[in-house]
């Protein structure tokens, strides 16, 4: 079980457009992420880190190459199959939080469970539990515009966690936050990874944030330039 990687990319390419105007956003990327890893993908803008994130998150399909998720080949899945994969195994955290603006924090966290078809009472309890984990139980009935940026991002983390995903994908999760909130958010992700063994893949351009991860992937021109594992003091 443990030797099957959660994410395994082999010679993944993603090409936009055709002919002379074709852009190779990813150019033969090989990457293996094992269960319980916390990796940070860094790189200059245009290096392909966002595209890599979209492919790993099954929001986008690679043009060529193989992508095994928990041992299953997912590169050729249909749009709806990818949606189901995201629904049941992936949790997303975005730079801009991406909460539904007119819905309460609680409803936002419930949303993935609605698509999982869970009953109202079950959903409510699970959503409150998730909000408790991020310390926002008291704000359950506030709308996003009544919450600070850090609080909104914590709601987003609760939403990502509520469906018990295998992997959390965080795209510049602290990009819109001040230093204090950023540290809060990163501590939270660090804790989730350490305590629950949750696999986390994060894209960031801030070295400070990348330092929270165990492993650092540097991307340049659609390729992986460096892959460094941090040796943590036990």
């Amino acid at each position: 079980m443990d030797d099957i990687p959660v994410i395994e990319l082999k010679k993944i390419s993603r090409i936009y457009g055709k002919g002379d105007i074709a852009v190779r956003a990813l150019d033969g990327v090989d990457l293996r992420v094992d269960a319980g890893e916390f990796i940070a993908i860094m790189g200059p803008s245009g290096s392909g880190k966002s595209t890599a994130m979209n492919v790993i998150g099954c929001l986008d399909s690679p043009t060529s190459g193989r992508y095994r998720f928990m041992g299953y080949e997912v590169a050729g899945l249909s749009r709806d199959q990818r949606a189901l994969l995201r629904r049941h195994y992936l949790g997303f955290i975005f730079q801009g939080y991406n909460l539904l603006p007119r819905a309460s924090a609680l409803h936002n966290v419930e949303l993935p469970l609605i698509y999982m078809g869970q009953a109202r009472a079950v959903r409510r309890k699970a959503a409150l539990d998730a909000l408790r984990k991020v310390g926002l139980e008291a704000r359950a009935h506030h709308q996003p515009n009544e919450l600070s940026g850090g609080q909104q991002q914590r709601v987003a983390i609760a939403r990502a966690l509520v469906g018990n995903p295998k992997v959390i994908l965080a795209d510049e999760p602290t990009g819109n936050l001040d230093t204090k909130s950023s540290v809060e958010i990163m501590d939270m992700l660090r804790g989730l990874n350490r305590d629950s063994g949750l696999t986390i893949v994060m894209v960031t351009h801030e070295q400070d944030m990348a330092n929270y991860a165990d492993r650092l992937i540097w991307m340049v021109d659609g390729r992986i330039d460096r892959d460094e594992r941090k040796v943590r003091a036990a």
């Binding site: 949606a83 049941h88 949303l111 993935p112 698509y115």
Partner: peptide
């Protein structure tokens, strides 16, 4: 549009 994007990202199918 953005709401639709959020829903799709967290696992809504086209049909949903």
């Amino acid at each position: 549009t953005r709401e639709i994007g959020i829903r799709l990202a967290i696992g809504a199918r086209s049909h949903d």
